[in-house]
């Protein structure tokens, strides 16, 4: 190859990152292997992001990363350098957002452990991409709930998304 020699990149055990979390700028040095969920929970004390499986299946740890819902248990903290994150703690500046209120009003939660993951998925996706109740089911299919059987959750989302057409 004729290009000049590549910049030398040194693998490290401790990684400096800059990230925006709930509109707050955070600078940190994280262990290379630290999971993003653990960084949020242990280092930033944002324990509303729950860890249910650590293998990207249950959805409890879902956060908003640069506008997309992602699973924070299968990302490394090091990977979010330069990104912007919202967690459940950042959903409302005070009180409850309309979505959160709809969950409360429609008994959309029981034990509450999976709830932040549902909220972060729903708060991040575009409702228009998920029409009708079937659309809501599709939107939340990556989040497992073991208490509600989803009835209260569907009703909460229909309320929050102004859908009365079916259900």
């Amino acid at each position: 190859m004729s290009a000049p020699a590549a910049r030398r990149v040194e693998p490290v055990a401790e990684v400096p990152i800059s990230v925006t979390v709930n509109a707050r700028a955070v600078e940190a040095v994280v262990p290379a292997r630290q999971l993003l969920a653990d960084f949020l929970r242990d280092d930033l004390r944002l324990t509303g992001t729950h860890v249910g499986c650590e293998q990207g299946i249950c959805g409890a740890c879902t956060i908003n990363l640069d506008g997309e819902p992602v699973r924070s248990c299968i990302m490394l903290a090091a990977q979010v350098d330069g990104s912007s994150i919202t967690t459940v703690e950042g959903l409302a500046s005070e009180g409850l957002s309309p979505l959160q209120q709809a969950f409360k009003d429609n008994h959309g939660l029981q034990c509450g452990f999976c709830t932040p993951g549902f909220l972060m998925t729903l708060a991040t996706v575009d409702p228009d991409e998920y029409p009708g109740t079937d659309g809501i089911r599709e939107a939340i299919s990556g989040n497992l709930c073991r208490c509600t059987g989803y009835g209260g959750i569907l009703q909460a989302v229909r309320t929050a998304w102004n859908r009365v057409e079916d259900g």
Binding site: M1, A3, A6, R7, R8, V9, E10, P11, V12, A13, V15, A32, R33, L35, D38, E54, Q55, L76, A78, Q79, D81
Partner: peptide
């Protein structure tokens, strides 16, 4: 279920 230790880098170019 925590990853074992490793070193990490984040190159900006394929050559790197």
């Amino acid at each position: 279920m925590k990853p074992p230790p490793f070193l990490y880098c984040r190159p900006r170019a394929v050559d790197e």
